[in-house]
Computed example of a mutant assay.
Amino acid sequence: MPPDMSLTTILLLCLAAAAAGWVDAVVGGGGLIQLPALLVGLPQVAPAHVLGTNKAVAIWGTTAAAVAYARRATLDLRRALRIGLAALGGSLAGAFFASGINSAVLRPLIMAILLAVLAFVLLRPTFGVTAQASEVPVTRRRVLTAILVAGLGIGFYDGLIGPGTGTFLVLALVAMLHMDLVTASGTAKIVNVCTNVGALVTFSLQGSVIWQLAAPMALFNLAGGAVGARMALKRGSGFVRVVLVVVVVSLVCKLGYDQWGG
């Protein structure tokens, strides 16, 4: 724990962790809140330690949400775990390269993808509101594509940078496997647990986690994740869709500010 950190700063970081857990549980993208909060609260700490601490916190809320979805929603756990195992490998590799990558190089590309996603979601009001499995069959090729893209690809991104991972997972699962948004959110949580495990293992082995700070933040993140999952399950895909649009717009604004306004 940095010696000059005040109790007020710790409390504010815990509240940010709770908010991040809620957003992550509903549609993903909690890193948009938690990672910037850690960067502001730990200005003198190396980026690798901030990323590692972020993963040590995020895994708790994601796990709580995954358990809540698994208990109350109809999920294909076998398929989710297959994608999750690929994501674990991808995040291990991404975290390994995290200390040597310039994230500013990736921001314009991520923003372009998010803007395309936002336009797609807004122009298709029924996207993810109802399951489309009956219209287009989920073939083995689609499942394999999901394993490679949502697993290895997004898993690698999560280990490398992280913010927006849950949102990318939800969108990929809806597009590739024709899930409704609630089912996609539940499946994404299981996959996201695996990406967090992979990244956290790498950061832990490198000694890049501030465990004294991660512990109290994790409790708040866990509570936020549990509440968010229950709200998403209770209110359905329409509610998740609204939160999805808000999170994507916020993520674009945050990346744009980091790129050109910082």
Rank of each mutant, 00 (worst) to 15 (best):
D158A: 10
L169M: 15
T167K: 08
G228N: 08
I190D: 00
G162S: 15
W211P: 12
V121E: 01
A112Y: 06
P216C: 01
V201P: 12
G164P: 04
K189V: 02
G153H: 05
T126W: 06
Q132E: 06
V149E: 11
V121S: 01
A172K: 10
I110M: 04
L200V: 06
R107L: 08
M176E: 05
T202V: 05
A215R: 12
V201R: 08
G159Y: 01
P125W: 07
T165P: 00
L122Q: 05
V121R: 00
V121M: 01
A226F: 05
T202R: 02
V121G: 02
A146H: 09
G155Y: 15
T126F: 07
A218L: 08
Q212A: 14
A199S: 09
V143G: 14
V121K: 01
T145I: 09
A172F: 07
G225Q: 05
F127P: 14
A112N: 05
K189N: 01
D180Y: 07
G207E: 08
V121H: 00
P137Q: 13
A146F: 12
F127T: 13
V170H: 14
L222E: 11
R140H: 01
P163Q: 04
A214G: 00
V174K: 11
T167A: 12
L205P: 04
V143C: 14
L106H: 04
G228A: 09
T183E: 15
G159S: 00
V138E: 14
V191A: 07
R142N: 10
F168Q: 01
L114R: 02
V201D: 11
M176Q: 06
A223F: 03
G155W: 14
L152E: 02
N196F: 03
A175L: 13
V191S: 06
R140Q: 00
S208I: 06
Q132T: 00
L181C: 11
M217E: 13
H178M: 08
G151H: 14
V117S: 13
I190L: 00
A184K: 10
L177H: 09
M179T: 04
A146E: 09
D180M: 05
P163F: 02
S185N: 15
D180Q: 09
L177V: 12
A184N: 10
M179Y: 06
I147M: 01
L171G: 11
V149L: 15
F127G: 13
G164F: 00
A215Y: 07
I154P: 05
G224Y: 03
A199F: 03
L118C: 08
I110W: 03
F120R: 04
V182D: 05
F127M: 13
I154G: 06
F168P: 03
F220K: 06
V174W: 11
L109M: 15
R124D: 04
W211N: 13
H178L: 06
S204K: 09
L106R: 04
F156A: 01
V117G: 09
M217V: 07
G155A: 15
V197H: 12
Y157A: 05
L173K: 03
G155D: 14
W211Y: 14
T165E: 02
A150V: 02
G225H: 04
R141W: 07
V121P: 00
G162L: 14
F120G: 04
N221Y: 00
